[in-house]
Each structure stands twice: as structure tokens, then as C-alpha cells.
Amino acid sequence: MSARERFFSNLGADKWEVPPVEEVRRILAIKGGNDIPQQDLVQLFRERVVGAGGKVYNCAGEGEIPGILATVCREHGSERVVFADDLAGYRQKFQARMQSEERWPGETKLSSRVDRNYYQGRTMGITSARAAFADSGAILALAGANESRMVSLLPLVHVCLVEVHSIHPDLDSASSVVDDSLKGSGASALTFIAGPSKTADIEKVLVEGVHGPKIWVVVLYPMGN
């Protein structure tokens, strides 16, 4: 008997069909609907990001994003700025801006062009969110062909671009987004990010930046119109 057969025979192999999905739905219905007011989604999301230790910037439109990135970069003195590959356009505009405004000693790269050893010192990683969730302030990061897993994980600063229309009340209302991202030809890894890397393992004192980013920034766009 193989290890697998033995394992299953110990379980008592009587029921082989998973219950119909309706049964799961029926049980989940017990929990009641969510209490999140639809009209305040963006406001709630913003509050929850801050509550989780993040910082929020608002952009009226995409055009303002490179400027905001420059502000964040200056504030934290970032010198190695890595963009997810699908943000190549922003990278060019950001680079041009940094070089025209002042003497900036740093450089920018696309995530596919650097390896793990690149993220040393004052680094910043920039990604875009596949979706965001108001009740928790979480964003959904999808690593794959366009985005290295490293770019939201190894730098000291992680900036995430969030389109306001991609904000869902909570994961309940967006489980299909997750399923579509994972199944079939989707990505092998997705991560809900809600805050900087943090620990409270020493006397319950909150310390940020234990393994991953110390600073977590969300840039919301387009805001205000």
C-alpha cells in the first residue's frame, strides 16, 4: 500500500464527493452581509491603510503620479528605485523628473532587470495593485511575468499604485478576482499587503521593517473628479 493509500484508508474512505457549492453558500449566508457603506469606500480604505501603518497620497490623475513618486523618493532618500515591469512608462517619467530637478545620485530599474542582491541600502520598489479592499486597507499584489516577488518585499520602501475603481468593500465581494488571478494561466503567487513588514515580538513593542519594507505607501488615483 502506498503512503497515500494508507493515509486515506486511515481516514475512513466513505465520502468521496465534496458537498455542492450551494451548501457552502448556505452556511456562509449565516454570517450576514457586510456593514460597509458603499459610498464611503475610498474614505474607509484610506483610513484603514493609515490604521495598518501605511501612508496615503492622492493624485487627481495619472499625470501626477511621477511627481508623487519623486516626493516619496526624496523623503526617504531612496537611491535604487525598482519598478514592476508593467510600470515602465512611469519609470521613464520619474527618471526624467528626478534628473531635471536636482542632482540625484540614484538610479531606476525594471524588476526583471535586477536580481535579489540589488536591493541593498536605500531601496524603493513600485508596484500597482490588482485590487484593493476597503474593510482591511489591503491591496492585492500579483507577482508573475510583469512583477517580481521581490519588488514589494526586499526594498525599504514599497509604493503601491491603487486605482480608486479597483477598491472593493471586502474580499467577500471580490473572491472571483482572486480565483481568476490564481486559476488557469494566472500567477503562482498573490499577496494581500496591508501594512509595512512588522513585528511585536519584543515585549509587544511595534517595530516596522523587520524583514521587508519599513515604509508602505499607497498612491490613490484618480482622485477628486
Partner: peptide, 8 residues
């Protein structure tokens, strides 16, 4: 409300 990282 949610931990910093929830990976699938």
C-alpha cells in the same frame, strides 16, 4: 483587521 502579508 488583516495581517501585513497574506499570501496565496
Amino acid at each position: 483587521r488583516m495581517t501585513s502579508y497574506t499570501s496565496l
